[in-house]
Simulated scan of single mutants.
Amino acid sequence: MTMTIRTSRTDEPASALLGTLAEQGASGALSTESGIVYLASGHVVHVESAVTPALGDLLTHSGALAADGWWAAIDQAGRRCRVGRQLVDSGHLAAGALELCHLGALFDAAYFVLAHDGPALRFRPGVAHWLGAVRSVPVDAVLRESRRRRELLHRIWPEPGVDLAPLARVPDAAPSDLPARRSRTLAQVDGVRTAAQIATALACRTFHTLVELRRLAAAGMVVPVATVPAAATTTAPATAAAPATAAPAPSPFPAPASAEPGPAPRPVAPDEPETALLRRLLHALEAL
């Protein structure tokens, strides 16, 4: 029987329900307003959110995997929910590389799913993600890492509007000697793109993009579009001044879970993989 939880009928946050499901050793998909958490035997096995790049994007855009290999694995094993295993067994990707990238995508999406810790919408027992088993993570570890990221971002810049709103440059801000990653991030701020869209354009993990954007906000170089000074309208790109042509912000609602793959990745410039951080996360999980 499916457990259905409606926002209007409960004040229980998603984190609390995740804890209950972990204690029960539940398997299935927990939906919130900003994503879906997939569980197997009470452990988190995957998290997806509409505002973070998908695992396939991270693998192919980083150069770790050819796009043909990704889609071949989906064609062969998607409906059996064994895409991850197919990638490794076919020799397209080393198991360690898959685990590292999967952990990065999982924690990125979990941050958005749990950032505001709103109420859960629905739990569907038995629903599995088409990726299949890669690396399970204890619920406590996911909650702890999401909290750590939230606190870190708050220390850098306490306004969370930077995370989801379209962003624009402050006209009079003159950047000088910015680190390379921050400079690349700033170059993508155009008055239309959100943090997630900027991360996708850079083929970079969303959390690291958020860190750079909040640093830019703290330095007075970037603001959400709603708070851009009037003078910005003279320097903003044409797309920012023409609602008919501006790209919409990503929907906060995730796509329905199924065995089918998501949309094809867009070709973008690759960014270096965050292997050092991901290896630390992997070692920490192995120590649990």
Rank of each mutant, 00 (worst) to 15 (best):
residue 193 R to P: 03
residue 65 L to Y: 00
residue 171 P to R: 04
residue 160 P to E: 08
residue 281 L to E: 11
residue 151 E to A: 14
residue 79 R to F: 15
residue 162 V to D: 12
residue 10 T to Y: 06
residue 71 W to N: 11
residue 7 T to D: 14
residue 248 P to G: 11
residue 265 P to N: 14
residue 175 P to Y: 04
residue 263 P to T: 07
residue 148 R to D: 09
residue 93 L to Q: 12
residue 219 A to E: 14
residue 5 I to Q: 04
residue 146 S to R: 04
residue 27 S to A: 12
residue 112 F to Q: 12
residue 133 A to H: 14
residue 160 P to S: 11
residue 174 A to Q: 09
residue 86 Q to T: 10
residue 146 S to V: 04
residue 115 A to R: 13
residue 287 A to T: 13
residue 18 L to V: 01
residue 94 A to D: 11
residue 93 L to Y: 03
residue 126 G to D: 10
residue 108 D to Q: 07
residue 116 H to T: 08
residue 275 T to I: 06
residue 236 A to C: 14
residue 261 P to S: 15
residue 249 A to T: 04
residue 120 A to I: 02
residue 266 R to W: 12
residue 244 A to Y: 06
residue 285 L to A: 02
residue 2 T to A: 11
residue 211 V to H: 07
residue 53 P to Q: 11
residue 151 E to L: 14
residue 216 L to H: 06
residue 146 S to H: 02
residue 247 A to L: 14
residue 244 A to T: 04
residue 268 V to T: 08
residue 21 L to R: 06
residue 218 A to V: 06
residue 256 P to C: 12
residue 30 L to A: 06
residue 49 S to K: 07
residue 202 L to G: 13
residue 83 V to I: 11
residue 91 G to M: 11
residue 55 L to G: 09
residue 222 V to Q: 05
residue 230 A to H: 05
residue 196 A to Y: 00
residue 5 I to F: 09
residue 20 T to P: 01
residue 136 S to G: 11
residue 39 L to I: 08
residue 49 S to D: 02
residue 243 P to E: 10
residue 281 L to N: 08
residue 110 A to Q: 10
residue 193 R to N: 08
residue 182 R to W: 03
residue 24 Q to Y: 00
residue 203 A to M: 09
residue 69 G to L: 04
residue 266 R to H: 01
residue 104 G to F: 06
residue 185 T to Q: 07
residue 46 H to Y: 14
residue 214 R to P: 04
residue 165 A to F: 03
residue 151 E to V: 14
residue 202 L to R: 12
residue 59 L to H: 00
residue 177 D to I: 05
residue 288 L to V: 13
residue 145 E to S: 01
residue 79 R to G: 15
residue 8 S to H: 07
residue 178 L to D: 02
residue 241 A to R: 15
residue 30 L to C: 04
residue 68 D to G: 12
residue 272 E to L: 15
residue 209 T to W: 09
residue 163 D to H: 07
residue 35 G to F: 09
residue 123 F to E: 02
residue 237 P to N: 02
residue 175 P to N: 10
residue 248 P to I: 03
residue 32 T to P: 05
residue 235 T to N: 05
residue 8 S to Y: 14
residue 68 D to T: 14
residue 80 R to A: 15
residue 86 Q to P: 01
residue 218 A to H: 13
residue 132 G to H: 06
residue 255 A to H: 11
residue 89 D to E: 15
residue 242 A to G: 02
residue 169 R to M: 03
residue 168 A to L: 07
residue 78 G to K: 01
residue 281 L to Y: 12
residue 194 T to W: 01
residue 87 L to G: 01
residue 207 F to R: 01
residue 143 L to P: 11
residue 87 L to I: 12
residue 14 A to M: 05
residue 277 L to M: 02
residue 82 R to A: 15
residue 274 E to Y: 12
residue 246 A to W: 06
residue 15 S to F: 05
residue 28 G to R: 02
residue 282 L to H: 15
residue 11 D to Q: 14
residue 55 L to M: 06
residue 262 G to S: 10
residue 180 A to W: 03
residue 145 E to I: 05
residue 72 A to P: 00
residue 161 G to T: 06
residue 219 A to G: 11
